[in-house]
């Protein structure tokens, strides 16, 4: 079975998410993996080849972590409003940022069901 490419825009649609920044870029970004966590050290510990991050963290560190760990896009769950500093950094680093009202559990369930792969060690 080959790895499936999922467009970030498709993920936004699946999660019924609101795009905060990077809308014009996300059509060009395909991902294969997803990682869900609120603890950033856990995110940093893995290599996220073409992955997105699902997190309940809405502060600047979520975006910093994505930038440092080469994560393609960040989705904030449970409808939290991201801090202005997080939005600013995401814009600066060209990392698409979007918010879904779904819980982390729902968002993971849906994306896994559609074929996104987990991130390995």
């Amino acid at each position: 079975m080959g790895t499936l490419d999922m467009n970030v825009r498709e993920i936004v649609t699946l999660l019924d998410a609101e795009v905060i920044t990077g809308g014009e870029r996300m059509d060009k970004i395909d991902v294969q993996r997803c990682f869900s966590a609120d603890l950033m050290s856990d995110v940093l510990a893995r290599s996220h080849n073409n992955g997105i991050l699902l997190t309940g963290l809405a502060n600047i560190q979520a975006v910093r972590t994505a930038d440092i760990a080469d994560i393609k896009a960040v989705c904030i769950v449970r409808g939290k409003t991201p801090d202005p500093s997080a939005v600013e950094l995401a814009r600066q680093k060209s990392i698409p940022l979007f918010v879904t009202k779904k819980t982390m559990f729902e968002a993971c369930g849906i994306l896994y069901g559609k074929g996104l792969q987990p991130v390995g060690d």
Binding site: C34, F35, S36, A37, L54, R78, K102, T103, M104, F105, E106, A107, C108, G109, I110, L111, Y112, G113, L116, P118, V119
Partner: peptide, 20 residues
């Protein structure tokens, strides 16, 4: 041993839904 994303994905497939 699974990461959260994978375990949740499997639980979801087995019918467990996210609740609040």
């Amino acid at each position: 041993e699974l990461p959260a994303f994978e375990l949740i994905g499997k639980l979801y497939k087995a019918g467990i839904r996210g609740t609040q």
